[in-house]
Design a protein around this nucleic acid. Structure first.
Lengths: 131, 131
DNA sequence: CCCCTAGTTTACGTTAACGTAAAGGTAATG
DNA sequence: CATTACCTTTACGTTAACGTAAACTAGGGG
């Protein structure tokens, strides 16, 4: 154990997170560069908190859905905006709705593509029994 | 009417399709360059068939889901592979399953993000009533 | 005949999201 | 004490997906 004074806070190294999310340390540093995460430092070394880890998880999920890093950053900033006055709140709610609509559109696209895949699969399987 | 000998086949110009799919002629020509479509020609001019139009629709849907053009091309080739022997069929079915799994993963990601958005929205709306 | 619109090719420019290489610091380990 | 395993910064390279500009053609209108 490295430090008994620590109150048992789980932290992660950049290598651990890279492995867990099947990415590279270069990528994770790049996300920091773009302002999506700001891990603590212990000397030179980056120390990632559970919250940082969640943020990376969100980034990866965004990537799977074709979100750009800029878009993911918007979402992250959205969730991190604790200090809201009413003006901010309204804008945040608008952003939430915009994101929701995008996701629903994607969901609809997925349903269509799944149906088309199934149709195609059926045609092929029918084709395999015939000649 | 341009030609009475034509048997009433609907065709499209590149400009029409660019408008319909809210993109540019440059983009559509690029897709051709990458081998995703091969429109007919009338002299120099590209003439797009309904099938070409469907292909472009598929490309656009793919883009909304974060598919690269290479990935969309795979799907298009998948659908266009009418001339299948059994070897081909097996590979096609594998491809279909791979695509399906990807889409299901995306769908799961979307459900999670929708839930998170809703949670966040609730927190904010609760926050707006308090102080 | 001139202009306008819509098409064409060719080619260089641009942005995002890292990859890759170089050069170095640090801590444990044989 | 030298090696190994991770970490660091800096910086140039790369790929995808077009954007943008230049220069040209073809057809219809006034």
């Amino acid at each position: 154990m490295s430090d008994m004074t620590n109150t048992a806070i789980t932290t992660f190294t950049i290598g651990e997170l890279a492995q867990e999310f099947d990415t590279t340390t270069r990528a994770i540093r790049f996300y920091e560069d773009q302002g999506l995460i700001s891990p603590a430092r212990e000397g030179q070394k980056r120390i990632y908190s559970p919250a940082d880890r969640i943020t990376i998880k969100l980034i990866m999920r965004g990537k799977r859905l074709g979100f750009s890093l800029a878009e993911s950053k918007e979402l992250i900033d959205l969730y991190n905006a604790e200090d809201g006055n009413r003006m901010q709140h309204v804008r945040v709610l608008e952003q939430v709705n915009a994101s929701r609509e995008r996701l629903l559109q994607q969901k609809a696209d997925i349903e269509i593509m799944l149906l088309e895949l199934e149709e195609h699969e059926n045609r092929i399987q029918a084709d395999m029994k015939k000649p």
